[in-house]
Design a protein around this nucleic acid. Sequence first.
DNA 1: CTGAAAGCGCTTACAG
DNA 2: CTGAAAGCGCTTACAG
Lengths: 365, 365
Amino acid sequence: VIWENIYPRGFPFHGAALRLGKAHRMARNATSSTIHDVARAAGVSIATVSKAVNNKGRMRPVTRARVHRIAQELGFRPNDLALSLRRRRSFTVGLLSNDIYGRFALPILGGVEEALAARCTSVFLCNAADDRDIEARHLASLLRKRVDGLVFTARRADSEFPAERTTPRIPIVHVNLEPRLDGPALLADDRGGARLGTAHLAALGRTRIAHVSGPQGFRAVRLRHAGYRDALAQAGLTDAGALFGDWSEAWGWEAVDRLFTARHGATHPDAIFCGSDQIARGVIDALRHLGITVPAQVAIVGFDNWEVLAAGARPALTTVDPCLKALGIRAGETLMGMIDGTPEPSGECLLPCRLTVRASCGGAA
Amino acid sequence: VIWENIYPRGFPFHGAALRLGKAHRMARNATSSTIHDVARAAGVSIATVSKAVNNKGRMRPVTRARVHRIAQELGFRPNDLALSLRRRRSFTVGLLSNDIYGRFALPILGGVEEALAARCTSVFLCNAADDRDIEARHLASLLRKRVDGLVFTARRADSEFPAERTTPRIPIVHVNLEPRLDGPALLADDRGGARLGTAHLAALGRTRIAHVSGPQGFRAVRLRHAGYRDALAQAGLTDAGALFGDWSEAWGWEAVDRLFTARHGATHPDAIFCGSDQIARGVIDALRHLGITVPAQVAIVGFDNWEVLAAGARPALTTVDPCLKALGIRAGETLMGMIDGTPEPSGECLLPCRLTVRASCGGAA
DNA sequence: CTGAAAGCGCTTACAG
DNA sequence: CTGAAAGCGCTTACAG
């Protein structure tokens, strides 16, 4: 095929007749029609085309209509790159995480994307993969691309992320992450959520409520433990034991072994508030294995509302939902507000968790 | 605070001394220094700055060094918007899915992002959320942003996605999705994977291998079933029964009930090849509940290598890994190749699955 | 009602 | 060795 003049004015190959495959043509990003093409075809100036297609300014209705029609026929698609250059606003934001693969980043990411799409802005997805170099490169690239704002998220709220400490001069929001740069941080209220889950157990009449959670090095673990103790105190109950291990089902099995097999007598817990659904899942499976019925003998509450684990459990797991997607949506909206000029205080802002009631506590919703 | 002249030449407020808050300033995207600023400070022309910072052209080393230093001091960061406009290449691609929340989109997405980041191109994340309108809007936005290429992915390989049927004139690749527009499609080899899993069971000496899978409406279910039968035929074994239900643990429990409780005699399977890890998980738990030991009495193989389910199972699940992340990486590389001009045939390209051996079959790796 | 011109921030032949 | 100028594709005051 001979393509003539597919290179626009000013391009090195302009004017040459070149023999090119489709692939090559596509590589040059298939020069779609511009405002000049429309202007020429409609017999007007580019200024008029601009006003017409943007429904701005004043002109004879018939002119506007003709321009519209021709733009349509030519498949005219305004070039946002040019627009952004002029506007000094790209309608683009960067989402940077140290762990995009993590199960928890996903709903946040989806929420942010949803909120931004609703405000006509696109999001660049960047995974720093726990690598400082990659993180720096992503950040530099985002800044060169003139994103209007930045959102940071991480695997853990207490991550040392971003490592970069110089704040770029654009709005920033942190999601489920302690803020390390200027700008607000939206976090799930772990402590409040734990209070909610534990109080649910107490309200159902359980009096010997144990706690099985992850590594105490995690901020989330400490906060959830604190919330558990808050609720106990409030209900006038005493601590039936808090066990800390790792984030795994295996640890749930082991904890049950410690709580029910190794100990004896009537001191067994009648409820367990777990620090994660994974742990809760192990606990439930282990109890069934021991012939201890859930919820009749022991009621269980988890944390995370990780659908595949919680809904698949037998009985299905009642659990605290950190509402990560809502967090993402809220973050997206906050960022858009800042971009539009609404001042936002730096610092942490906690969003409430919700209890998702299934079958593992017996009580109905 | 009085900010003078923070608006560049040509901007409506240029030249005015304005009283503005920080938020407002940020909203205008904090006009960072341009090539003109550097040129002025260095006492050279912008052409020279351009050549200097890009290490192109020839000039006195001392000039280059000075420009470098000044650019550094001024925190000069080239504006990619301007660059892209000139180059007609944005170093940006769009990733559009009908289900970004899905567990399967995640590793694909991560793989694509990783491959593209390595080639200095950023990815726009777009979730169509099964909504035609949103899909169309995202697509239009991506095209206006002049992405260099597009990758489509979906919850199911046989999704009617994208709904849009007119192919944009830029490279496209489909990942784990039957192609509906021009361009190649990279898919996991479900049939080959199922063959792998079933053959593993046969090689271990199992002779009565059953199959428990999801809804037959899914392409993946039909292909995995076919692969299962391939392997059976190859091993000279007969079909010990294929059951189709839904993608849930509960269905795994029910299938076990049908296979082991409802039937009697010596005809029980000694192995089950499951169509998903979720199903396999239900099967394993149900077997344990019945006092049937895995793998001694019954060996299990799953499909997906969904870490949280497979590693958490007791015993840990041997399963077929569709290598989704590798698929994503490959897709990213293919797309970059196309953008650079390498022609790529349209049509499906299957990538091999791998067996991840854990404990549910007994045999070691 | 319509258009010419300047400008957004860059790069690249081309001339000096 | 260095710089003036044109051009990427748009928008917006301003003049006619």
